Amino acid sequence: MNNFTIFASMNNTEDIECKISDVFGKGFAIEKNEDDYHIKSKALFNKYKLIIRVMSEDTNPAYFVNNIPGMMNYYNSIPFEDDNLKELVLTQISVLNTVIAIESEKEIKDEQMQLCLSLLSTIGGIGLLPNSTLLDREGVVIVYPDGQSGPSNFRPYACTRKVRVQEAISEEGHQRKNKTLAYLKEKGIPYTDSLPQLPPMKDCQFKIKEDIARRAVALLIVIQFACDVAQGENIGESRDFFINMLRKYEVEASLTDNERAFLNDQQPNVQEAINISWQYEAYWTLIWALGFVEKLDFPEGVCDCEYAIQVVSNYETFEQFYLQSAMRSQEEILDETDKIYRLHWACVDSRIQEQTAPAGMNESIVLERRRGLFWLIGHQNEDWDTISMNT
């Protein structure tokens, strides 16, 4: 391989030059050109040259806007054998703000690789090999490209700058947070005061009714295809049927990129199909927001899948379905979003402590409800497939 990349979450990059010097100072000459470092070996023979490029959200904002969502999509599409590890990796990617790209004119050998790993250890963050294997800060494999877990005991890290920038303080947010905390106390569910407020209604980017309705119908149809894949049905026949359904309801444009790729895959992955089928719970929040579900019950039991299907199948066209919907208020949607946000924290905290989720919650249900609700409020303008799940 000829390149190695370090991704990190850092408050500033001012000390990176010192860290590069500490690692490469012996045996190499270092020349700096703006944010690039040219590393040349001092040996008489077997001369070696590396270029280290440093980019941050401050110096190269376009890189992060264009590449981090793609990185999220890529690792979200990998069939992780450990769903918890997938959540941790996606959480880490969501808070990255620094890239140290190392390029070599020759193939990187063991000796140079050890130096790259030393820099990774010094800087922190995660390392990316050309084949998309991820390493932790100690150089231990987090996950392989096929989704197989490595031996790393990985935990994501976010600098205070990335954590604090997400919090918006408002009286409305304060009242909503306290309302949720009172609900959690009543149910005996643990919580933390440090979990930030969600933005007030005026700062949210709520999806409009038609977009929600189209997303709901498209998602339901993809879920049905995923269920067929998971159950070993005839893939070709199933694909043709559900593509025709998408066209019948005129919602093909509301598929996500991941869903479209899954639907067109000649050999769709079974684990991915199972993951998509769990999105019944995210779909449930959409039809709740559209008025087809009376209330979101406590997330301990799966939704009524038969009813979930009938909500759409009762209508011959999208227009008929849309006309029967009755949009809930933004306040009600945001209240439920705040609640699921803090319930998710309780699930994650219990899992970290190797305890079962409190009050009989099913974390998979909580996770998917959060996906749907955060998408509804337009949280950080994230796409459906890349909703951040950090707590």
Rank of each mutant, 00 (worst) to 15 (best):
C204W: 09
F292H: 08
Q112R: 14
N3Y: 06
E111W: 01
L88K: 06
I365C: 00
F45C: 13
Y48N: 14
L220K: 08
G124R: 08
T391H: 07
E105D: 15
Y157I: 08
Y191V: 07
T285S: 03
K47D: 14
M201R: 08
N67Q: 15
N60K: 14
I208F: 13
A359V: 10
P196L: 15
L323H: 12
C305I: 04
I169D: 09
Q320D: 09
R371I: 00
V293P: 05
D211F: 10
G378F: 01
V65I: 13
W288V: 06
S94W: 11
A101Y: 05
G378L: 07
K207C: 01
L255H: 12
E336S: 12
N153E: 14
V251N: 04
C159T: 12
Q279M: 00
S21H: 11
A226V: 07
S170D: 12
A213K: 02
N264Q: 12
I333Y: 05
I30G: 03
L119I: 05
G124V: 01
A43H: 15
L88I: 14
K187Q: 11
A8V: 10
H344Q: 12
E354T: 02
R328W: 07
R260P: 03
A182F: 07
V65M: 04
L50K: 00
H379D: 09
P79E: 11
I243M: 07
M113P: 10
Y307L: 12
S21T: 13
E259N: 09
E316L: 10
H38L: 15
H344R: 07
L120E: 02
A346M: 07
A226Q: 07
T317P: 01
A261W: 00
G127T: 09
Q353C: 05
S277Y: 09
S121T: 14
G147I: 11
P268G: 11
F7G: 00
I78N: 03
R215W: 00
S313V: 08
V251R: 11
F4E: 12
S41T: 05
P199W: 07
F206R: 10
L90S: 10
N84S: 15
P200T: 06
E57R: 13
I20H: 02
V165D: 06
D193T: 09
D228E: 09
S170Y: 02
I309N: 11
D240F: 11
P268D: 11
P69K: 01
S9T: 14
S149Q: 05
E233S: 14
S104L: 13
T5Y: 13
S277W: 04
T13P: 12
P190A: 06
I189N: 10
E107P: 06
S21I: 09
W284R: 06
E237T: 14
L115F: 08
S118C: 14
M361Q: 02
S152Q: 05
Y249V: 04
I126F: 10
